[in-house]
């Protein structure tokens, strides 16, 4: 599902991740002149597409938030062996 508004995409993506931290992945697909961001947990799929240079700042922002979330985010409550 494509989300047109970045702000909505950003918030929904983080919610999705927090609901299932271990099953959610974040992909940045780059093809000449086009960037597609995808966040999915294999149940819900959120995508954001842009070809505007001004959106680079937003891409930078969401990437920068996913790093701390994924490297040291909260451990899942039920995810123990």
């Amino acid at each position: 599902m494509y989300v047109d508004d970045f702000e909505a995409f950003y918030l929904a993506a983080i919610d999705l991740y927090k609901a299932r931290p271990l099953e959610t992945r974040y992909t940045i697909k780059f093809r000449q002149g086009k960037v597609v961001l995808k966040v999915t947990d294999d149940r819900t799929c959120l995508k954001f597409k842009t070809d505007q240079q001004t959106d680079l700042r937003q891409i930078e922002r969401i990437t920068a938030i996913f790093f701390p979330l994924m490297a040291c985010g909260e451990l899942p409550a039920e995810g123990e062996q």
Partner: peptide, 11 residues
């Protein structure tokens, strides 16, 4: 430059 690159991150 003319192709596609995917970068995926997960926990």
């Amino acid at each position: 430059k003319a192709g596609t690159v995917w970068v995926t991150m997960k926990r």
